Amino acid sequence: MSTHKAIATTGLGKVEEIQLPTPTPGPGEVLIKIAYGGLSPADAYVADLGLFIREYPVVLGFNISGNVQQLGEGVDDLKVGDRVIVGAFAPRTSTAAQQYCVQSRSVIGKIPDSLPLDAATTIPDNVITAFYAVFNQLGLPIPSSFPPTSPPANADVPILVYGAGATSGQYALQLLRAAGYTKILATASPRNHEAAKDFGAHAVFDYKSPTLAEDVAKFVGGNGKVKLVLDSISAEGTMKLVSGLVDEDGVVGMLMPIKKGNGLSINKMEDILLGIPTESSNPFASGVKLVAIRTLLYQQDPYLRDNLMPTIIPKLLEDNIIRPTRVRLLDQGSLLERVTTGLNLLRNGQVSGEKVVVKIDH
């Protein structure tokens, strides 16, 4: 049996190069030759804290771009050589930081020839997260087309994307704009303000501003509060700030896991909250609905499972409705060195407004 190179966490705090058997795709599956793998803060939690690990080894990275190498039985809408992206959530020996992987057809999307593979790597889990959050968890209807043939009924509802420097936040802005919403707000550090506006925000605010609540209220009008919030950072500190901006009967979606403190430095499992905080540490009014957004659960929605990666995201890319965010490309040194460098950037909070992408050599 042939094998290939992979970078995996093999024990708590251990990241190593290992050899894995190169699998053969079964029915409904595809073998991908990986060109680039994307890293996110969750990879640092997995490697350093053992978050969600049931057994080792665990290959790092959730985002994949590459080419179809082999098709399993029943996959008739792709061909060998197709350029694809993959939202690689499971199994954890089939994720991104390796030369080959097998994945279900349902998590694979074909991409246009004009889209570079490194840039495409910013898309899968982040667009899945943004789409699932906005059009499922926050309750906004999925448009029949992008842009829609007519504006949504609540097109002027104030919607805040908190943490628009995060890649998922940037894609949420693009999707909301494409769906026809006209009062999209964002918070970001000043260096990310222009990018947030370019991605679709109608107003951008410095999350550190002492007049944040007043500035938001002035833009929103009415009672000065927003109805819907997507918190792309999800920490105790952001909850406190958002609680002063959201309407008393609003909805706040929080990307799991929630972090203690300001969420910028996570050094132990105790810093991570796997669910919505209890009443004693919940700063929101009693009427605010808090939604714990767990991206992996999007496949429990049959429509999204069957359509989001196979058809919806490829169509969005083909029609230039969404475009990639900035790439922090790591292509120097060995594969292990590249992944280690990426993890260190994420650990130290040195990534903002961009996605860490690792080149995979063959």
Rank of each mutant, 00 (worst) to 15 (best):
P25W: 04
P25R: 08
G250W: 08
P23V: 06
L296H: 12
T3Y: 03
A42M: 11
D48N: 15
Q299P: 01
T122G: 03
V46I: 15
G72Y: 02
S189I: 02
N348S: 12
R54Y: 10
E279R: 15
A133V: 04
S65I: 04
P141E: 08
I258W: 07
E73L: 09
F219K: 10
G221R: 05
L255W: 01
A201Q: 03
V127D: 06
I293P: 00
A292E: 13
L273C: 13
V58D: 08
H4L: 03
A155V: 00
F62C: 14
E29C: 09
L160D: 02
L304E: 03
I142T: 15
L316H: 03
G221E: 12
V68N: 09
M1N: 11
F52I: 12
M256H: 13
T311G: 01
T22N: 06
D113N: 14
T295C: 11
I272Q: 13
K110W: 00
G224T: 09
E73V: 02
R54M: 13
A201C: 09
N126S: 13
T93S: 10
T211H: 11
N136V: 13
A235K: 01
V288T: 06
K259Q: 14
V204K: 05
L296G: 10
F219N: 05
R191V: 15
L176R: 01
P190A: 10
P143W: 13
R177L: 12
N348C: 00
V107E: 04
G163N: 11
T9Q: 10
L330M: 04
L273Y: 07
T295R: 05
Y56G: 11
V86K: 10
V251N: 04
G26D: 01
I108E: 04
G275T: 15
K260T: 12
L212Y: 11
S281P: 00
N192S: 11
Y56C: 13
L297S: 11
P283D: 05
S40K: 08
K183S: 13
P152H: 08
Q137H: 07
D43V: 04
M239I: 06
P147I: 05
T10L: 10
A285P: 07
S150D: 04
N267D: 12
K260R: 15
F205D: 08
K227V: 00
I34E: 00
L78Q: 08
G139C: 07
T238P: 02
R323A: 10
V226D: 06
I53F: 12
V288D: 13
I159L: 07
V68S: 09
N267P: 01
H4G: 07
F131E: 02
K33N: 12
I233Q: 06
P143Q: 12
R326N: 14
V58N: 09
F146G: 00
K183V: 02
N192E: 02
